[in-house]
Amino acid sequence: MASEIDIFNEYPLHLDPTSKAISLLPSSSQSTTQKAAITTELQELNALHRSLLSLDPPNTPPAPLPVNPKRSAQITKLRDSGNAAYRKSNYAEAIRLYTYAIEMALSRPGWEPVTLAREELAGLYGNRAQAHVGMQAWPEGLCDAKASVDSKPVGNVKAWWRLAKCLAEMSRYAEAKTFLLKGIEIEGRVSDGGKELVQLLEDVEAALQRMG
């Protein structure tokens, strides 16, 4: 058993001397599916290697906490300017700014806590969904609201409302109702947001009834 830990399959790998990228030598004897798996894995490895190189020596990822505040500050700044644009009803500009912020949040290195990324992206997607609603771009709003709700189901009542709203606007009442019920179940009826969800649910149900 002790010797088993030392056994491994050796792959004919090649190190590019300048870029330090690892690749599989074409002369290897693996099947095509295996080769594809190895190649994708090596791509991931090279990407991770590049992100490691940007760190301070000794080039190992730091513990998940505490987080480097630089990126968070940038994201907050972008979101605030997005909010300002939204308030001026400049929805296209707001969407553009939110998109930048989302890209920045998505490019957080993987070893930073996932809860932080979820929290941030839930807010950003929710805001972008609202800007899409402002432009009456229901499908885009729907997808953003879904992403927001998926990131953070609890305490995200606005995103639930926007999700159902987009669906209702596209006359997809049955779906809207399912999501509203789910949202109400999570958020409760008594809170301010909860009441709005209940209100929208009533509207949706009325619409469903009228459709027969």
């Binding site: 807010g123 805001n127 402002g134 606005k158 709203k165 209702a168 606007e169 009325a206």
Partner: peptide
């Protein structure tokens, strides 16, 4: 059918600003 839903929407436009 849209009237109840879109009527509700008018009042809720401000929602996004809370964040």
């Amino acid at each position: 059918l849209g009237s109840p839903a879109s009527g509700g929407g008018g009042g809720k436009k401000k929602k996004g600003k809370g964040k």
